Structures are given as C-alpha cells and as structure tokens.
Amino acid sequence: MSTSPLNALQRPRRLARQVGLLLGVSVLIGVFLFHVWTGLGQLSERWPTLLWNVYFSFIYAVFIVTSIRATMTVLEARVPLRSRRAVALHVGVLSVATVTAYGLATGFCKVLYASSFSVRWQVLVVTATVTFVVTLVWSAFAYMNSFYQKLREAEAAQYEARLATLRAQINPHFLFNAFNSIAALVRTRPGEAEAVVEDLSDLFRYALQASKDSGMATLGAEVKAVRRYLSVEHARYRDRLIAEINVPEDLRPAPVPSMTVQPLVENAVKHGVGKTREACTVTVTARRMNETLVLRVTDTGPGFDTTDLDAVLNEGSGLANVQERLALFFGEAAQMTLLPQGVEVRLPLQQAAEARSNLPPEMTVAA
C-alpha cells in the first residue's frame, strides 16, 4: 500500500510533537522532584541530580504513556463508551495499567541504573502520586476529546441525514411532470422529446453530484440547473412560460447551497404559470448588497394570497425545504421573504465563501 507524501511528512512531525511533549512533562516532574528532595537552592552544586531526575522521569513517562495508549486502543475496540458501566471499566483498567507500567518502569530503572536510582519508599510514593495525577489528568482530557469527536461525528451524521432527506424531497417535484411531458412529445415531436430527456438527464446529474459533495455550489451552476429545469417545463407549458434570468457575471462564482434556486423557480412556475391560462414570465435576478447576495424569483401570475411566510411554509411547499436548507447552512444569517408575486432570499456572502474550497470543479462552472 503506497503512502502519500503528505502522510510521510505528517508522521515525523507527529512523532516530534509527542517526543517534545514527553520531554516537557519529564522536565516539569524532574524539577518538581528535585525541589522536593534537594531544593532549588542547591541546583548549582547538584545539577547532575536534576538531570538524572529528568532522565528517570522521561523513562517513566514513556512506559506509562505507551501502556495507557495501548490499553485505550484495546478498550475502545472491545468496550465502546456507551454506558456508565463502560466508562467505569475504562477507568478501572487504566488505573491498573498505570500502576503496572509504573512498576515496570521502576524495575527497569533499578536494573539498569542501580547506583543512580533511589528506591526509598518516600521517593516512590511521591513519584507514584505525581505520576498517577498526571496520568489521570491526561486520560481525562483524552476521553473528553474522544467524546467531543464522537459528538461532532454524530452531529455531522444527523446533518447529512437531514440534508439527504431534503434532497430526496426536491427531486420528485418536477420528475413526474417531466415524464408526462416526454410521453406527450415522444410521438408528435420526438426531436424535442429527446432534447427534454437530455436536459432532464443533465439536471439529475447535477442533483446527484450535489448530493455527494459538501452541499455548496456556485450561483452560476445553480443558474445552469435552472435553465435546464425551465427547458423541461417549457415542453409542458409551451408559450405560456417565459423565462428571464438576470444574474451578473461577477456574481456567478458566488457560492450558494446547491439545489436552492431551482425549488424557488419551481414554486414560481407552480403558483404563476400553473394558475393562469395567460402567458406568465418567471424572472430570476441576483444582486449584491454589501456582503449579502440578494436572490429574487418572481412571476407575473396571480401571486400569493398572503405575504406571511410562515403561513406558506406550514403548507409544506418547496419553500419550506429551501428554508430548512438555509437554516442548516447559515442559521439566522440567511433570510427568506415572501413577496406578493415571488420570493426573495438573502445570503451572507462572506460566510458562504468559507465553504467554497470544498466545491468540486464540476460544481464551479459558471452558466
């Protein structure tokens, strides 16, 4: 199995950080023990003793840290932290492992450095106490970090599940109507039916790509998807559907949540073109206001019966889907406003730009 250059560079750095941490802890413990048993006032006369203390502390640290890490690895694999009993078992086993490692380190030092290593019970008690406290604190932080990582993973999984559910709700809105249009065209206008199938295929390819990535796309890519959607719907409504898209070129690279603009346009088609027998114009506009991207989708149809957004969201429309997506990505920083004949969405450009580095190349193509 090949190793990437990045991993090859990270391993020596990680090892250097770990050795540096062990040395730092060893120096602190060695100085503390020297101060307890000798006194810092005698440092100039007995500095070799301080060096021996630091050296022995380093040996103890290596034994204990290695033992604890190996024990934690085995425990995490065999006894997942899913109950209080499991936590108690982890603590008990780690305590035994610490005492055992301390005994092994003591024996190792005594065998190799019998003349320099003191085994007076007072020294052993103090060093054992200090070691146990340091180990306990280190283990506590390690488990806190483990719980934090698992919490983040659980939140990420919940977020992805909600996002996947929202994506699944978006697609069927126009899929069945598109198939009906294709079925109506395939006998009378097969060439146009083929074009609709291609647009529908491209649209679903974009939606599928959006479902696999970070959930962000460029405004230009969203406009491309909207054009495909309008092309499919034009096969159904014919001349009753007129589309106008006014999105400046300098705003098309702006990052936005993927599959956000299309539901707004779909809503305009449904409540505009779908509720009138006359020609209806669906307009998509975008403008920049300071650090805010203002998206507006309007139609010349009969309009909404109310401008109360909550009342419309409670009906379970596609707007509720978009609202939840915006809340997932931006919280209260994004705003949606219901207009008499359309919808306006405001997104914080600066906050959205932080997610742009995760965009794949195919999601950054401007329309």
Rank of each mutant, 00 (worst) to 15 (best):
T3E: 13
P5K: 06
L6R: 10
Q10A: 08
Q10S: 02
V19K: 03
L21Q: 08
S26N: 08
L28P: 08
I29H: 03
V31Y: 03
L33S: 07
W37A: 03
T38Y: 03
G39Y: 04
G41L: 10
L43A: 12
S44N: 06
R46E: 11
R46Y: 10
W47K: 01
P48G: 04
L51S: 08
N53R: 14
Y55Q: 10
F56S: 11
I59L: 13
Y60D: 11
I64P: 02
T66M: 09
I68K: 09
A70H: 11
A77P: 00
R78Y: 01
P80V: 04
P80D: 04
S83M: 00
S83H: 00
G92F: 07
L104M: 13
G107Q: 14
C109Y: 05
C109Q: 07
K110R: 14
L112S: 10
S115G: 11
F117N: 07
R120D: 15
Q122F: 08
V123N: 11
L124A: 09
L124V: 14
V125I: 08
T127G: 08
T127A: 13
V130R: 14
S139R: 12
A140I: 05
F141V: 05
M144A: 14
S146F: 15
Y148I: 08
Y148Q: 14
K150L: 14
E153Q: 11
E155I: 08
A157F: 10
Q158P: 02
E160Y: 04
R162W: 03
N171Y: 10
N171K: 11
P172A: 01
A178E: 10
L185V: 13
R189Y: 10
A193P: 12
E194R: 14
L200H: 11
A210I: 05
D213I: 00
G215F: 05
M216Q: 09
A217M: 00
A221P: 07
V223E: 15
R228C: 02
Y229D: 05
A235P: 03
A235Q: 02
R238H: 11
L241V: 04
L241I: 05
E249R: 12
L251K: 09
P255R: 04
P257D: 02
V261I: 13
E266F: 04
G272L: 07
G272K: 09
T281Q: 12
V282T: 07
T283R: 15
A286F: 03
V294C: 03
L309D: 08
A311I: 06
N314K: 12
G318K: 03
E324S: 09
L328A: 01
M336L: 12
L338T: 10
L339I: 09
Q341R: 15
Q341C: 15
V343R: 06
V345F: 00
V345T: 01
L347N: 01
P348V: 01
A352F: 03
P360F: 00
P360C: 00
M363I: 02
V365M: 00
